[in-house]
C-alpha cells in the first residue's frame, strides 16, 4: 500500500462572516481508514466535512484527495473542473437523507451513474442493484422514498453515494435525525462498509459506534482539532479537559444507549 494519505487537509480556515468556524485544521486520512470526528454542536465538525467536497467553500487552505489538490481562497477563480473531480472522489451522506422524493429507490441510486457519469441505464441498474443489496434494501427498489422508514431512507442514501464508487465516504451525522430504534440498522451498514475496507470520515454523536468501529477519533472544539487518537485510549484517558467533559457528558446523558454488539475491532490492513 502507499504511504501517502488518501485525504490530506492542510491549514484549512473557514469564516462565516466574522465567525472563525475552522481554525487552521490539518488532518490526514489513510486509505481504508475509518475516522470519526466528535465534538459539540457548533464546534465546526460538519463544516470541516462539507469543506472536503466543497459544499462549503473554505476560506483558505489546501485539500488533497487521492492525488487531486485544490487550494481554496487563493487568487483567481476556483476551477470548476477541479471541484467536480473532487466531488466524484467523495460520496456524501447527509443527516436529513435528502433522497429525491420524485424518484423510486432504484432511480435514486441510478441517477448519479446515469446523469453524472453518462452510463447506460443497464449498466447503472446493475451497479444500483448491487449497492442496494449491500445495504439490504434491494427488495424496496420500486418504492418511493416516502414509503420508507428513516433508517431505510438513510441506507438508500448510503447506496446512492456508493453507486458513484467514490474513494472516500463522508457521513454528516448520519443517525442524528433518526428515531432511536432505527439508529442500529444504519450503524450496522456503516460497520459493514468499514469491514469491507471503505475509507470513511464520519461526523457523529454515537460514541459507542466511534469507539467500536473507528480506527481513529478526532475531537473538535471551537473550530480546532484539539485531540486525536486510537478510540480505546482516547475514551479511556482523554488528555484534553474539553474532551473529557464531552465524553462524560455522553456517558451521563441518555445519548449512549446503543446496544453493544460483539467487538470486531481490529481489521487487517495491508
Amino acid at each position: 500500500m502507499s504511504v501517502e494519505p488518501l485525504i490530506r487537509v492542510q491549514h484549512l480556515h473557514k469564516w462565516f462572516g466574522m465567525l472563525h468556524v475552522l481554525n487552521d485544521i490539518c488532518l490526514d486520512v489513510m486509505q481504508r481508514e475509518v475516522v470519526c470526528i466528535i465534538g459539540r454542536s457548533g464546534s465546526g465538525k460538519s463544516t470541516l466535512l462539507r469543506s472536503l467536497n466543497f459544499l462549503e467553500e473554505p476560506s483558505a487552505g489546501i485539500i488533497e484527495v487521492d492525488g487531486l489538490v485544490i487550494e481554496a481562497g487563493g487568487k483567481g477563480k476556483l476551477e470548476r473542473g477541479l471541484v467536480h473531480a473532487l466531488r466524484l472522489k467523495t460520496g456524501m451522506v447527509f443527516q436529513e437523507f435528502n433522497l429525491f422524493p420524485h424518484m423510486t429507490v432504484l432511480e435514486n441510486v441510478m441517477e448519479g451513474p446515469v446523469i453524472v457519469k453518462g452510463m447506460t441505464k443497464t449498466a447503472a441498474r446493475e451497479i444500483a442493484e448491487a449497492n442496494l443489496d449491500r445495504v439490504g434494501l434491494l427488495f424496496k427498489e420500486d418504492e418511493y422514498p416516502n414509503r420508507l422508514s428513516g433508517g431505510q431512507k438513510q441506507r438508500v442514501a448510503i447506496a446512492r453515494a456508493l453507486a458513484m464508487e467514490p474513494r472516500v465516504m463522508l457521513f454528516d451525522e448520519p443517525t442524528s435525525a433518526l428515531d432511536p430504534e432505527l439508529i442500529g440498522e444504519v450503524l450496522n451498514v456503516m460497520k459493514k462498509l468499514a469491514l469491507e475496507g471503505t475509507t470513511m470520515l464520519i461526523v457523529t454523536h454515537e460514541m459507542g459506534f466511534a469507539r467500536e468501529v473507528a480506527d481513529r477519533v478526532a475531537v473538535m472544539a471551537d473550530g480546532e482539532i484539539i485531540e486525536q487518537g486510537i478510540p480505546d485510549e482516547l475514551f479511556r484517558a482523554p488528555r484534553e479537559p474539553r474532551t473529557k467533559a464531552l465524553i462524560e457528558g455522553y456517558r451521563s446523558g441518555v445519548q449512549d444507549q446503543k446496544p453493544e454488539t460483539q467487538r470486531q475491532r481490529t481489521r487487517q490492513r495491508k
Binding site: T90, F94, F100
Partner: peptide, 10 residues
C-alpha cells in the same frame, strides 16, 4: 438539501 445532495453526486 435536495440541491446539496445532487451537487454532492457531481
Amino acid at each position: 438539501g435536495q440541491r446539496e445532495a445532487a451537487i454532492a453526486l457531481g
